[in-house]
Structures are given as C-alpha cells and as structure tokens.
Design a protein around this nucleic acid. Structure first.
Lengths: 191, 191
DNA sequence: CGGATCGTTGATCAACTTCAACGGTCGTGG
DNA sequence: CCACGACCGTTGAAGTTGATCAACGATCCG
C-alpha cells in the first residue's frame, strides 16, 4: 500500500530503512470523485497533492470568464498553486479532479516538520522543483515557438493515449485554443 | 566583497558563522563584457550563473531562425538552461550578457560537493526552485490570458525602469512579438 | 425518454505578422 | 574628431492565424 509515493521518492534520494510508515504519517489520504473541487480561487492553499491514481487539473478563470486549464496531474505527479502555497496567500487557481482519484496530501505546516524529521525530503523536493522548473522552461519555449496546430501535434505525440483519457474541450483548454479550432485541426489531421 | 550572494542566501536560510570564505570557494568569479556568449545551443551546460551586477538573457532560435528571448537575469537572479544542466544534455538555449556583468558561477560537479559540505544550501536551492516554479506558473497564466498589448502594459508596470535598460527589440522578443508591433503599441500608448 | 452537454461546421472578424522602405543614431576606423 | 556604415525604431499595406457566433446533430446520463 502507498507504494507509489515511496517508490517515487526512492528515484531521487535514499530514505532510512524501516521508517516508511512514520514518513507516510505526515500525509493525509484523500479520495475524490470525478469533478470534485480541491481548491478554488481566493481560498487559502494549504495543501500540496500527490496523485497516486487518477487525474487532477489546474485552471483559472480568464479575463473573459472562461476556464483556462494550465496543468494536468496524473499518477506520480504533484500539483498545487505554488505561489499561494508558499506565500500562504489567496489562490489564483482552481484544482479539480478530472477522474475519481486517490491522493496523498501534504499540508503546509506539516511540510516543515517533515523536513526536520527527514532531511532527505528536502533533497527530494529540491530535485523535484528543479525538474519542474526545467520542464517549465521547456514549456515556455513551446508556448513562444509553436503554432496552435504544432502544439496539438506535439502534445499527442508526447503523451500518446492521454488525449483519449480526457474530454476534448479540456484538451483544447489546455492547449490554449477553442474547441471549435481543435475540431478543425483534427479534421485536417485525419484527412 | 561578494556580499550579494551571501546576503541573498541569508534571506532563505541561516549559514554557519565564519565560513563565508569557504562557501565562496565553491564558486568561480566571472566578468563579461556586453554581448558575450556564456552558453550556446548544443553545448553541454556545466554552469549555473548568479548575477552580482549586470544583466544576462536567455534565448533560443525559433523555427524561423529568429532569436526568441525567454528570460532576463539581473542583480540577484540565477540563470541557466535547467534541463541541460540537470541532465547534463546538450543545451537548447543560448545565454548572453546584455550588459557588462559580474557573475558567480556554480559548476554542476561542484554543486554536489557544496550540498554535502553545506546542507543549508540544499534548503536554499529547494526554496529558490520552488519560488522559480511558482513564478513560472504565474507566467504561464499570463501567457495564456493576456493579449500582447496587455502583456506589454503588465510588464512596464511590474518592472518600471527595466524597459529603459534594454534595447526595444529585446523587450519585443521577450514579450513574444515583433519590434514593429511593439512600436505600434507604444504609439497607441503615448497618445 | 428527454434534456443538457459535447463535438462539428461554416461565416465573419480581430489581432498580430510579414515585408518593404525610410530616417535617426551610435560607434568605429581613418 | 569626423564620416561612414551598421543597426535600430517607425510607418503603412497586405496577408495569416485563430477567435467568435450561431446553428445543428450526436451522445451521455438521470
């Protein structure tokens, strides 16, 4: 049980043997159904989520009031509104389950205690954030460089199968264009 | 001397007293003139740069062969191609000085020794990357939400003065549009 | 079975790019 | 210290990309 997180941590750092359960005690276990809201804009963001099973998404309401998805989190991904989490300020994003999901939750106050008790976790998160930031640099590069159509092609090539896992309007929202335009691209792509 | 980095670190973590010089020995001091290249696409990216004084920029060549600036680094900022740095793979970005600059350089191999000798530096970088990633989430939000014109307005409001420090074509490149269009926006903005 | 939600299609429209041309200024060599 | 060339910012016309709006059919779920 709960092997997912421990296995993930083991890829980055070596934890002391026999203390798995004590480590897991720092986390809350959460189960959610489809379309449950885990965070809403304006709320305080107390929690960092690890997805054991399922899929979450992060989005915000853009200046026209339309939901704009900025991130998905599937198995073995962490997700939160980091600006709100770190500074303990009101969130500017929503987090919602796309599918029924099993999560582990790490609360802000608990995190500091976790680092004191397991210094290896500081190293784990250092490496995790470093990678997340690196991925973000790459993503910004794509956002600058790729046309909407190339963005679509790049996505389905990089994450084959995932496009089938989510409704099409969410994919359009994530890729940054309208469902109508996605429809047009797909038509062109088929023929 | 070199107070800038120590002062920056002190904002995130407490270093042991009297060991400043030993800490600084892990870094190389570098001075560059205007427009010197510190990293080029395809090279291995060995170094993480801290700007004590001056300004660097990161850019890539887009699919049309045009330089696309993705990041500036001024005083007290760190900069590197993180994907290439972490994985020690060929860089996909260029790093170039915008002004004559004083830098501190932390090399990849040295970094691991630094963490062993000064565990607080692991915490410093964990917090730094966490903030960088948070800022990146906010940036992606802007990239999705703001029109090019709003992007310009938002930038000069958030970083007053910086727009005067760099040539206009670099600002246009960073904001993701053509110098011609920036010119048009500025005209509209004046009147 | 019925209503709401989702994907598709086509027409019109706005934002931004591209291209070409011109004037100003900066810095470098003579 | 001057003159020349290269680079930079601006302007306007024409062209693209992708958004918006409205309408329709399909499908999912209660």
């Amino acid at each position: 049980m709960s092997a997912a997180l421990l296995h993930h941590i083991a890829q980055y750092t070596k934890l002391p043997a026999g203390e798995d359960q004590e480590l897991l005690n720092f986390f809350r276990r959460i189960n959610v159904n489809k379309k449950e809201m885990l965070l809403e804009e304006g709320q305080s963001c107390k929690t960092h989520y690890f997805v054991e099973k399922g899929c979450l998404r992060m989005f915000f309401l853009n200046s026209k009031g339309v939901e704009q998805t900025t991130q998905f989190a599937i198995e073995n991904w962490w997700i939160t509104d980091h600006m709100a989490f770190q500074l303990q300020k009101p969130a500017s994003f929503y987090i919602q389950s796309v599918e029924a999901s099993q999560l582990l939750a790490l609360d802000f106050q608990v995190q500091e205690k976790l680092f004191l008790r397991f210094p290896q976790m500081e190293s784990y998160f250092r490496q995790l954030y470093e990678r997340a930031y690196a991925a973000s640099q790459t993503r910004v590069k794509y956002l600058y460089d790729l046309s909407k159509e190339d963005h679509y092609r790049n996505f389905i090539e990089k994450y084959p199968g995932f496009a089938q896992r989510i409704p099409q309007y969410l994919l359009a929202s994530f890729l940054g264009f309208t469902p109508e335009y996605l429809s047009e691209i797909r038509k062109k792509h088929r023929s």
